[in-house]
């Protein structure tokens, strides 16, 4: 390089490239605190789980490398697919109900005709501030048809309501708890999206004589489409990771909620009562991939519509 070119140009080149180099390293330096933590708490556990999932540790015979055996087993495991189907059903029923209620509440508050809107807002949001464990214990008590609220209602009114913790109704009961917990959270997402709509749009609509419903359809809903997609993705991830509520209700309804009720519960009981850490890691990885694919698909579709 030096031999063929002039003296100035290569020097300049060297200077720029080294400056370029320095700049890029400085960038990495700023990134380092994040990168280190990210690697430690995110990449390392995933790598370790993948490593675990390639082995099998038995009571008799010890630890051995089994390659993809665990994956083959999981893909053919009826217990696993049953739990996936269950959260899938939960997803398609509970999430639309919850998001619809949240949207309704957000529109009502944003509409400006509601008396005591801020009280209403905080009241709906409050359940989100209750820890899921406490909320579930509380609901678990209310659902009790022996000594709980349902039991008392049955006693005092002479009814025999179906047992909310029985095998038929327990998924709906869990859905009810989750809806109660997260309507406020989603409402807040929608509400904040509604607040940033420029007032000039409403003024224009008012001049055009648009009705309130027309405004909702033509202005508000299109404006919060992004928020809707985000809330949907959060809810999908939340559904697939369903764990707290069924796991706690499991203690009062052992016969209705089995140890592989949701994929997360399955992974949990595999590792903690079955010592099948390897298989548990496999389930977790498959579930993670599945969630990623579905969430990504929803995002792509949601965004395409937005364009």
């Amino acid at each position: 390089m030096v031999a063929t070119g002039s003296v100035v140009a290569p020097a300049d080149k060297v200077a720029t490239s080294s400056r370029h180099f320095r700049r890029s390293w400085a960038g990495w330096g700023f990134l380092a605190p994040f990168a280190v933590v990210f690697a430690l708490v995110f990449l390392a556990p995933i790598a370790y789980s993948i490593y675990l999932s390639l082995f099998q540790d038995r009571l008799i015979g010890g630890n051995s490398f089994v390659g993809a055996d665990n994956y083959n087993q999981a893909l053919q495991d009826p217990a696993f697919w049953e739990s996936v189907r269950r959260v899938g059903l939960f997803l398609v029923v509970q999430v639309p109900i919850m998001l619809f209620l949240a949207l309704l509440a957000a529109l009502a508050i944003d509409g400006g005709r509601l008396y005591g809107a801020s009280l209403f807002r905080i009241a709906i949001f409050l359940p989100y501030a209750v820890p899921a464990v406490v909320a579930t214990l509380m609901w678990g008590f209310m659902y009790g048809s022996q000594f709980g609220l349902i039991g008392s209602i049955n006693d005092s009114l002479g009814l025999s309501l179906p047992d909310p913790l029985g095998p038929k109704w327990v998924l709906a009961s869990i859905g009810n708890i989750v809806t109660w917990e997260f309507v406020g959270y989603n409402m807040l997402i929608f509400y904040s999206a509604l607040r940033v709509i420029p007032a000039s749009l409403y003024e224009a609509a008012a001049i055009d004589g648009a009705s309130e419903f027309r405004i909702i359809r033509a202005i508000k809903l299109p404006a919060i489409r992004g928020a809707l997609v985000i809330a949907t993705i959060f809810s999908i991830i939340g559904s697939f990771q369903l764990f707290n509520e069924p796991n706690i209700l499991h203690y009062v309804a052992k016969n209705a909620i089995n140890t592989q009720y949701t994929p997360n519960m399955y992974a949990y009981s595999l590792s903690f009562s079955g010592q099948q850490y390897n298989y548990s890691a496999t389930i977790a990885i498959i579930m993670g991939l599945l969630t990623m694919v579905i969430a990504y698909t929803v995002q792509l579709r949601g965004m395409r519509k937005a364009l």
Partner: peptide, 14 residues
């Protein structure tokens, strides 16, 4: 024992 209620438990509720 941890899977007793997953299996035998069904007899108690169904």
């Amino acid at each position: 024992n941890s899977i007793f209620n997953d299996t035998v438990g069904k007899a108690y509720v169904s």
